[in-house]
């Protein structure tokens, strides 16, 4: 005999924890103290991105002008790769700092 919908639901809920203050305490004890730390990591990433863009964009434009239009796409690709790499590296640093 197949279980009914209610039986399935009951089985799926069977061992879900109800109130668990120990879990709540475990989470809250691990929260980074102060939101400023967290905001700093976001601002750090933004700053790195802006610096990367400000540095790389003129370089890319210069290089493209010097070498001709044929390399525009390559330069843009290189530029984007560098920007994305910087973004990811900054994210990794921020996550490490947050831990």
């Amino acid at each position: 005999m197949r279980p009914s919908e209610d039986e399935l639901r009951a089985a799926l809920l069977a061992d879900a924890p109800d109130r668990d203050e120990a879990f709540v305490a475990a989470v809250t004890s691990r929260l980074p103290q102060g939101r400023t730390v967290l905001n700093w990591s976001a601002w750090l990433r933004r700053a790195v991105l802006l610096v990367a863009l400000a540095t790389l964009a003129p370089l890319a434009a210069e290089a493209a002008a010097a070498l001709g239009r044929a390399v525009d796409a390559t330069m843009v690709a290189v530029c984007l790769t560098l920007v994305l790499s910087s973004w990811m590296a900054a994210g990794a640093v921020a996550r490490t700092l947050r831990r």
Binding site: A16, E21, F23, V24, T28, L31
Partner: peptide, 24 residues
């Protein structure tokens, strides 16, 4: 706004759903 107490209350409310979901 940075209230850990308020966040703890949210954890208390939703821990069952999240833990139950992850267990299943």
């Amino acid at each position: 706004a940075g209230s850990a107490e308020a966040f703890a209350a949210l954890v208390r409310r939703h821990q069952q759903a999240v833990r139950g979901f992850l267990r299943r």
